[in-house]
Design a binder for these strands. Structure first.
Lengths: 204, 204
DNA sequence: GTCTATATAATGATAGAC
DNA sequence: GTCTATCATTATATAGAC
């Protein structure tokens, strides 16, 4: 996978290798910015540096296949960046704090909106209903397990896990709508306390 | 403003009057469903029953002008459906409950996503940054005032008001992503308690 | 105030040269 | 593996008849 720079005519710098993951990352970034419907092949071409025809070489199914590959890649990101810290060993609070750090890093402190949210509200929710639901559920399960481990009953754990994911999504929307990134940072900082309030085992 | 029905040839039923507000309501519905980028003139034409050329007659500025008019209309909806119940007379809790009922009605119990959220995440956040921020701020101000009246200090009122709007946005995204409308209903039902917890004046 | 017709551009997608 | 060239389709936008 190569990326062509039109502004550089020198033979050795004319092409730069681009791994599939890097390309997918750039494609995901476009979907995140403008939603599935709003993403045009021209924009995806510009973002990757690959011509439209080259994109079809790598993703014969066009935009829909690109989005599916993005969801596959996103599944790995969620597993390694969100689920793994929650499922790690250590005290629940410490794991939640590491999770929150990852969330802040992935969303660039609130300045990047969520790919899932953009797909939900940007026209992809009919086509990718299954993928979207599974991406949210993977995070829900990990949060639920941690909260049960911290002493919550299953129903309360589920309730709090849903609330936490909803708060993150809402903070990204509201923070971007108000153009106040600090809103997202505040919500995130308060999440561990909120999730563990009045359910921690006395012995911990 | 007339709407033409292609399936009815009888002269008297051929045209049905469509007020500007009804047309704007249908246009807003398209933006809400697919975002600003995702909304095409053809779809807006279908939704209103007006030909593309007729849409340009009423909105010479095209899609952008339609969106601006939608924001103007939305400002009135926010004022009458969200701000007015919060600013009415009566006990804070009763006003919050009427507000929550209005929110549930407007979003059809969670099955309709928020126009503001769709514009934020659907590609319109650069063009309509000012309109989006003001729409959120109008609701924030009304919530803040009620909470101060209920005994909260200004900083805490602001914090809780932001949280409430964020929770609504997040619940709409998450509920739609998970395809679980009950999530939105639960969050909404818990909002009044959450907003007033530990700040109500003893004498009330 | 709506319609048909049209102009122009951008879209998704494919074929074939290199 | 990328490119240019091309296709049909759809998009935004306008002109003018009724």
């Amino acid at each position: 996978m190569y990326r062509t720079f039109g502004y550089d005519g020198s033979p050795e710098a004319c092409h730069v290798k681009l791994t599939r993951d890097e390309a997918l990352h750039r494609i995901a970034d476009v979907f995140r910015r403008v939603g599935y419907e709003g993403a045009s092949l021209s924009e995806l071409s510009r973002a990757t540096g690959l011509g439209r025809a080259s994109l079809y070489h790598h993703f014969p199914g066009g935009k829909e296949e690109m989005a599916r590959e993005v969801f596959r890649w996103l599944g790995e990101v969620i597993a390694s960046e969100f689920v793994a810290p929650l499922a790690a060993s250590g005290r629940p609070r410490a794991r939640l704090e590491r999770w929150v750090e990852g969330v802040a890093r992935i969303y660039a402190g609130g300045s990047k909106s969520c790919l899932l949210g953009a797909m939900v509200l940007g026209g992809g929710s009919e086509i990718f209903a299954r993928e979207l639901a599974e991406a949210f559920r993977a995070q829900l399960r990990a949060l639920e397990r941690l909260l049960v481990e911290a002493g919550a009953n299953p129903a309360e754990a589920r309730r709090r896990a849903e609330n936490a994911l909803g708060r993150i999504q809402g903070a990204l929307v509201l923070g971007r709508g108000l153009q106040l990134p600090r809103h997202f940072r505040r919500v995130l900082a308060e999440l561990p306390d909120e999730l563990l309030a009045r359910i921690q085992r006395p012995r911990e």
